[in-house]
Design a protein around this nucleic acid. Structure first.
Length: 186
DNA sequence: GTAAGGATTGGC
DNA sequence: CCAATCCTTACT
């Protein structure tokens, strides 16, 4: 008798993090997101899996470094959606930045994925995952090409917080310790 | 319509 | 140090 051994198929894995996980407030979610597995599946069957090692929080219209500080525009609209969607935008005309929208509806906030196990730098992350404009608004709880899977929580002793990178214009907000790094050997 | 500048990177 | 490269925004 034939048995059902292929219960856990790629994108249908029970490990996939649900929308609810991403609907926590960004600053509470950030340390939990470190160590989670980012998965990118291609139409030819190839799959990339990398743990998240570095990220930054962009929180609310009051945060001068957050794109939502410019108000609600076509570009920032996705950040006003409930957590679990992806915010992708082009910077310096060449790099696609991967952000995860967090928090409840109408509370603009997102987490920028700056580094993976074998990929350093947010521009390189986008290139590695072959992201483009079509990923903006992608639903991580349903997508067949990009999602996150659960993994053990990183102990706080292995997490370092620093100011965010490249936001010198953000006045007092540039001092916030909203960049989080997972340093496994610390 | 037009111009300025950016959540970056790599090369000189 | 600075060019690459183009989208979004804020002006006129």
């Amino acid at each position: 008798m034939k048995r059902h051994i292929n219960v856990e198929l790629n994108s249908e894995s029970s490990l996939r993090l649900p929308a609810k996980f991403f609907q926590q407030e960004a600053l509470a979610l950030a340390p939990q997101l470190l160590g989670k597995v980012l998965v990118r599946a291609f139409s030819d069957g190839k799959i990339l899996r990398q743990k998240v090692t570095e990220l930054e929080v962009y929180y609310g219209e009051e945060d001068l470094a957050c794109h939502a500080s410019k108000g609600r525009t076509l570009r920032t609209e996705v950040m006003y959606a409930p957590g679990g969607l992806v915010y992708v935008y082009l910077i310096y005309g060449m790099y696609w930045m991967l952000n995860i929208v967090t928090g409840p509806k109408e509370h603009p906030q997102a987490i920028l994925i700056r580094g993976l196990e074998e990929v350093s730098g947010p521009g390189r992350v986008g290139k590695f995952l072959q992201l483009d404009k079509s990923f903006n608004g992608e639903d991580l709880s349903k997508s067949q090409r990009l999602w996150l899977e659960d993994a053990p929580t990183i102990p706080s002793s292995a997490i370092t917080a620093t100011p965010r990178i490249g936001i010198d214009y953000a006045q007092h907000c540039k001092e916030y310790l909203w960049r989080f790094l997972w340093l496994p050997d610390k």
